[in-house]
Design a protein around this nucleic acid. Structure first.
Lengths: 341, 341
DNA sequence: CTGAAAGCGCTTACAG
DNA sequence: CTGAAAGCGCTTACAG
């Protein structure tokens, strides 16, 4: 039979309370006693029953999700997924709070993170902005012992515990590879629409994309990046303007959000004249555009996976447990019109 | 506070034992009593604490995984994932048994499934073969109340509870789309290597592939399917022979396993003369071939996901709990050399 | 048909 | 520094 705390207590000749103290690294145990208990633990091959422990503790996890209030389907969908997770809060023993911040605003994000310190939750997840202030604030959270997970966009070297999102360099490289191969070695001009170079995910996608185009598809010319702030209206304007200035655009890589605007602009182009388009994030609008031939490929990250993964990781960190790396890797989904789910 | 069985007992004026009987649908409760308790349950908005219930029950789940003993990396990897899950059996309260059967052998699979009935486990997962006998046997398991999950290859209309695998028609369609676009509208001859038309996953991939080629890329001619039984040696022979007979082969779709043989055959072709190759399953050998340019794209299913999903679903079915469909959908991963994980 | 009591594996005041 | 006892939310014999 699986050994329990009782077995350890008996084998070490101590009480349950003492076993518990050793198990949880609490103070107030003489070194010799501690060693006896630790000996019994390894001798018996004890593994703690986390469910029973949580039951006894009446443990609940308070998590704060800080999300940018963008007006785009991806961020709206992300927030929806967090709310879906909130609906499961009773069986999962979580208590989740959503904090809204203005998008692409480092100061606002820093303020939101700082506010978290007032009443420290069991963990914090946030969409990172890559700035020194945010980095420093994240380090303060880490110093305060609050587990942190970056969501969608990472900020390395900040002391954050985990990143729940895709490898954006690989995503950009993949987009370039598809673009180059779909264009079939013909010289072409390609436009790139981003949200903001302030966020790392967009910068990395651009970097991956540019690298592969340069190395493997030198016949392709990339126009200067358009920054649409993931705002559909602004994106539409920028794309329309770019098409006016460069009617010969043969390909388009939309590496941020705000694709509703892009799609509206594409719809004005004659069928047959349309550029090859690769976009990110499968939403109602990109799905329709993919099915209808306005978009040729969509790279996607599953917001539901990211949220569930963030919660699992925050729980594990809060309990000092290891995370199952293979399970938590968020993959880049590639959708063509033929494998739409 | 979250209501517990105590609250229900008090509110309904009955004992804990009676509450438990109603909660678990056990007999021996008068109709009026039952109704009182049910009233209290909905009035208080009670949700059962599954972890506490499992603790009290000392519940463990016995699962049987029936896996074909193919000599190919994918099936070996699948078995490895099951063994990895076995290592987590203590915290997850599972007891997993692996049963090996000869590949592509309906009779052997039926025998293995029948053997399961002797000492019925909490659930069974198996790689299905699409034959009437297997279908009938699966229905018998269902009739016996044993939850069943098909793994990798499905067998619909058999009474199985769930399928843990990708949408293979969509996978075939995707392969065709990539093949057609990568070939760039040039007339071409394409060879298809399958394992066996006995398994539904291979049939469906072929169907999806053929459909899209026919509808969207009429310039492509598909040669008669080669059946390599997912055996590297046989696959190598068949491919070598096909290349000898049709030196002009421009593309190859390997929709089964046994890619080690395919790759050996490809390596003998001059660089520059090599066909465009799309294969299934990311293994050590396909990964190397992808990185080295012998293979152009790999469609993959994550065996680890499938195994973990099968276990989650079997648990839920054993407990009569609903499954989170979005979480259990297994996706088609598309790998190019630029997004290798 | 119904209930009182003990127990699952762990933790938590409280007492010493 | 250490332990006896009660309790987390549920289930299970056993008695009536």
């Amino acid at each position: 039979m699986k050994p329990t705390v009782h077995d350890i207590a008996r084998s070490a000749g101590v009480s349950l309370a003492t076993v518990d103290r050793v198990l949880n690294g609490r103070p107030g145990v003489r070194r010799v006693t501690r060693q006896k208990v630790e000996g019994a633990i390894v001798a018996l091959g004890y593994v703690r029953d986390v469910a029973a422990a949580n039951l006894a503790k009446g443990r609940t996890y308070g998590f704060t999700f800080i999300l940018p209030g963008n007006d785009n389907s991806f961020m709206i969908g992300l927030a929806d997924e967090v709310r879906t997770a909130m609906a499961r809060s009773i069986p999962e023993r979580t208590h989740i709070r959503i904090v809204d911040v203005p998008p692409f605003d480092p100061a606002a994000l820093v303020a939101a993170l700082e506010a978290v310190l007032e009443a420290p939750p069991s963990g914090v997840a946030f969409v990172a902005i890559d700035s020194p202030e945010v980095r420093a604030m994240t380090a303060r959270l880490a110093a305060a012992g609050i587990p942190t997970v970056t969501l969608v966009s990472d900020i390395p070297d900040s002391g954050r515990d985990h990143y729940a999102g895709i490898d954006n360099i690989a995503a950009g490289r993949t987009a370039a590879s598809l673009m180059g191969r779909f264009l079939g070695r013909r010289p072409a001009t390609v436009a790139v629409l981003a949200g903001s170079m302030l966020v790392r995910d967009h910068r990395e996608r651009l970097e991956g994309f540019s690298t592969v185009i340069r190395e493997a598809f030198p016949e392709i010319v990339i126009l200067p990046v358009l920054e649409g702030r993931d705002d559909p209206a602004l994106a539409e304007m920028l794309i329309a303007e770019a098409l006016r200035q460069n009617p010969q655009i043969g390909g388009m890589y939309s590496l941020g959000a705000g694709n509703r605007g892009l799609i509206r602009a594409l719809a004005t182009i004659e069928r047959g004249e349309r550029p090859l388009v690769i976009a990110h994030e499968l939403t109602t609008s990109t799905r329709t555009a993919l099915a209808g031939g306005l978009i040729d490929a969509v790279l996607n990250q599953d917001a539901g996976h990211e949220v569930r993964s963030a919660i699992r990781v925050l729980k594990a960190k809060a309990d000092g447990l290891p995370v199952l790396a293979a399970q938590e890797r968020i993959r880049i989904d590639i959708f063509l019109k033929d494998n739409l789910p």
